[in-house]
Design a protein around this nucleic acid. Structure first.
Lengths: 206, 206, 206, 206
DNA sequence: TATGAATGAGAGTTCATTCAT
DNA sequence: AATGAATGAACTCTCATTCAT
């Protein structure tokens, strides 16, 4: 139907404007500090109409951030279902490549998710995410240690570095634009963090 | 004096309860999201009485966080007044020792200061602090590079690692209790971050 | 009893200090704006102790202002009970003399009563007082008019001038110190107001 | 447009109700004592909605009172720019005519401005206004006295009468409705106050 | 008697959400 | 679909008054 199609088009345009302005507002002021009225006004629509597209502030936030959150968690789950063995390093970089792709497409959403979610249902995301990274790296390390007849006593340093990695990726993708440079920076960081930490880890003989 | 002593005790106890509950509330919800009513109620006192001890939300926050902020900035100023040369590393670890002491006494306040200050007058503290660390590390690196006839083109990685260091110290001191272990962890992190990054830095010949 | 007498003396001193400081506070900020805490502090006593002497803010105000209010009303009642006749002018000035004496002793209280009572039970005092003055002057005028075979149709101008007289007396006694000058000024005002207004009044033949 | 027109009507009606009830509340309780909640409730609207129309208590007060204040001050400035000479009386009555017109349109606002502004930015208005009137009358009197080879020593009585005039105009316009009667009353008051005061003034030979 | 900490209602203000148009 | 006026709960803060000491 022509009219319906036209109206659908109109709706999408409004929705896109709202999404665009909401990202700006959440990025600037965080979940709690963002104002629905300001988002509506700068989207050239009304508060009431915004609520036609998103049923609440939380729903709007979820629509912006939820898919990035889900994609991250899905990839991480995928890692969890793979048996870490002698191809560990290969798998690790492979998955980081994929995660980088997600970041490249949604760096703003990621930055918001990680740094501006206070007061929303994602406020614990950063630690959840870091916990996953910690697990992957720990498993990789466990594998390497196992070859030496040792095992991890404590993975706190891995946890710290995983948190750092998560935040650094957000910062890098926020401030850099050149894809090659981004890739190099993240790989450098991973290299610095994880390539020479075996002797820093709390280990014991099996 | 018994009565005076007793009343003083009562007052301090209330104040301490308010401080304790305010730290919890600010830690959980950040400066903006924290509620004076909730702090008062969970301190088993009334809103009006809380305002006998602290003249405003900002004043309460400053009483909790201000001294930690000041001590950090004072030490950082001290670093800035010292000429970085071949003793750079020595000075660097010396000052980190001092900062560690501050952190040991006020780890919660530090975590709040760095991560929960949005909307308060300290909201730029984390980046200010990271900028200082960046400058110190950069100067140290410049010195070492200069001996090799090179110089820094870009210190973005140093900036990232400085941010990481700041946050890691907060996390370490929040979650660890054993002083020796804390010291070892921080030194490990510093070692991981800065000991082998010369080849990761963007350099050029002089 | 010696101790009782001594304590009574102490109590009076505290009470006097409270009264003195309360007058200052009410004068400066009006009934609503005055602060019990400030009055107590500047009286060198505590809030709780102030409430030993005065049971409420309203009670304190009444203790300061009530007697002046009562004396004013009593004198005015006295006028009302006197038959106004050919000695009217004489009686009028006589009573104004007496009122002036009251004012001389309690000019601050009067100024507060008339100008700072908003929100207290005396907030209508100014108009009540002006109504009384109006009645007296009207009766005097009625008497003079009656001799000419006329009577008042409307006493609105008398009401206005009575209000003015009340306020002018308060201002004069607030700003002037020399008794003779005060007397001259008030008599001048009365002269200006009431000596030549017969032809301004709304009259009709009996 | 019907819908637009209707909605505009609704908005204006609410605004008018708020203005009407705010005037009542400020008139009754003064700036400080007035309650936004009470104004909203008696306007049959909510507190939040009132703030759609007026951004603060001060803004509401300014919207009610500001234009009257400005018009008064503008006319007074106009007086100040005119050289007072033998046409003084003519100019004086001319300007009073204009002021009367202002008063006729905004008598309630004027009464509030002059008597209920304690705590607001207009709290000194009454004395400012009275000072202006005092200056005009003094200049007029100086001119007349100069013809007799005398000059004013003190204008305190003029100041008192100017204050009285200001308040009387407010009262007259609050209580009277007939324009001709209002004009007559004000002119009568001016006549009583200023026509025969030369011999009451503190003068000396030049 | 004297203290001042404690109370709690009410102040001005904000804002996500709803709803009549 | 779109509007934005309206709602009301929650915010920070104040202050007359009470009460345990």
């Amino acid at each position: 139907m022509v009219i319906g199609g036209f109206m659908q088009y109109l709706k999408d345009e409004v929705r896109n404007r709202i999404v665009y302005e909401a990202l700006r507002e959440f990025k600037n002021k965080g979940y709690k500090g963002a104002s629905i009225r300001i988002i509506a006004n700068s989207s050239n629509t009304s508060v009431g109409n915004l609520y036609k597209y998103f049923s609440s502030k939380e729903d709007l936030y979820e629509n912006l951030i939820g898919s990035v959150y889900k994609r991250l968690m899905d990839y991480i789950s995928e890692i969890n279902s793979v048996k870490i063995n002698d191809e560990a390093e290969h798998i690790f970089y492979n998955l980081l490549n994929k995660i980088m792709e997600i970041f490249k497409e949604n760096s703003i959403e990621l930055a918001i998710l990680l740094n501006k979610s206070e007061g929303s249902k994602y406020e614990n995301c950063k630690s959840t995410f870091a916990d996953f990274i910690t697990r992957i790296v720990s498993q990789t390390m466990e594998y390497e240690l196992h070859l030496k007849g040792m095992r991890l006593k404590d993975n706190f340093i891995i946890y710290l570095l995983s948190c750092n990695l998560v935040e650094d990726m957000a910062v890098i993708l926020n401030q850099q634009e050149d894809g090659d440079r981004i890739r190099k920076l993240i790989l450098d960081i991973i290299d610095i963090f994880f390539n020479n930490i075996l002797d820093k880890l709390d280990c014991e003989n099996i």
